[in-house]
Simulated scan of single mutants.
Amino acid sequence: MAATTAILFLVLLASLSATSSSPYFSATTLFQNYQNMLTSFRIFIYTPTKPFNFPNPPASLFYSSLLRSPFVTQNPAEAHLFLVPFSPDTSTRSLARVIRELRNNHPYWNRTLGADHFFVSPAGIDYSSDRNVLELKKNSVQISVFPVVSGYFVPHKDVTLPPFSTSPLALLDGLEVNSTKTTSFLGYLNWDGMTEPNLVNELKGDVDFLVEEKSEPLNYMRSVTESKFCLFLYHGEVTWMVEAMALGCVPVVIVDRPIQDLPLMDILRWSEIALLVAVPRSGAKRLKEVLNGLSEEKYAEMRELCVAASKHLVWNEEPQPLDAFHMVMYQLWLRRHAVRYARREFG
């Protein structure tokens, strides 16, 4: 496993040109820590009060992959982190009962008030007046699905799961990335059609932009290859982001506030991979100025980086080295250090 990971990592780095920057904050640190994680990271999973499934694909894949992984230990004494499993439709009252039972029946929660615990909640949880749920929200690591509802995500503590591709990645085989590709459109938007924002209407009327509503996978992938930038409305449809990046279409996330919940934010330098554009009033005109203002050299570099970064955003039924599952595990590994209270407080 270590040899395979090393080869894949070197291939990823070699795929970048000598003059390109890296998509990682620190490639060396990532590789060294990743190897340590594979060999030593251990997680203890509490027994859920009742069987449940996650209907959300990335949450389901993460949870099932973790259950089958060598990271799980049956010995809580050797665990770095503890997973609190509960159904996504658990009520606040029931969730409070779960934490109260952990507090009363096990010694591990009280050592850190939950700081070395984590939980999976696709939509995230809000703050609560109940002490138990409040400790879970404030202290434990929340794993949810990108993007998260405003106020439900705590930066530098919580983690988001990369979006799950709804189309077979095998479709990418016939659509290879061209470093010198010519494009027909400045920007492309595969729109979910759930809302009708003014910006979408403006983009529809501009010949430099291609806007399609819920296009079929092969069709939108072809549109992606014909466009320089791929547009994503924050809290809109983002499931095709991985394919877009893999095909060298630089992602542009259109937002109305700062984004702090992008996937793998501890690992990837999103500022060098994607453009985050606030378009409150000036609309399509402002967006066009930003996109046209990017130099060809900078654009070429961003294309390389987003292709390289996409390799870490792919979900597999059987986890592969450096894929989305392992990168989420790596973010948990980075959060494994927690200050524990004196033994007398829980002994």
Rank of each mutant, 00 (worst) to 15 (best):
Q32P: 07
F44V: 08
F9R: 04
S40D: 15
S15C: 13
A27K: 02
S64H: 07
N33T: 09
T39L: 13
T28G: 08
Y34A: 01
T19P: 06
L10W: 06
R68Y: 06
S69W: 04
P23N: 00
V72W: 07
S21K: 08
M37H: 05
P57I: 00
S22Q: 03
F44T: 06
F71I: 07
L67A: 06
M37F: 05
L12H: 13
S21H: 12
M37S: 03
Q35C: 11
Y24T: 00
N75M: 10
F31H: 15
F62C: 01
Y63A: 00
A14I: 09
M37D: 03
P58F: 02
T5P: 06
L38T: 06
S17H: 10
N75S: 15
F9N: 06
T47L: 12
L12C: 13
Q74Y: 08
S69H: 04
L10M: 07
S15M: 13
T73D: 11
L61E: 10
P23Y: 00
I43T: 08
N56P: 05
A18H: 11
S15D: 14
V11Q: 15
L66W: 02
N33K: 10
F52S: 00
T28K: 10
T5S: 15
N36F: 06
N53E: 15
Q35M: 12
S60G: 02
N53M: 09
L13S: 07
F52L: 03
L8Q: 14
L10I: 05
F62K: 00
F44A: 11
S17N: 09
P48R: 06
P57N: 01
I43L: 10
I43H: 10
P76R: 03
F41W: 05
V72S: 05
A18K: 12
F44D: 02
V72Y: 07
T49S: 15
S22L: 04
T73R: 07
S26Y: 05
L13A: 11
K50P: 06
P57K: 02
P51D: 08
Y34M: 03
V11K: 14
S64M: 02
V72I: 15
S26A: 10
T5Y: 02
A59Y: 02
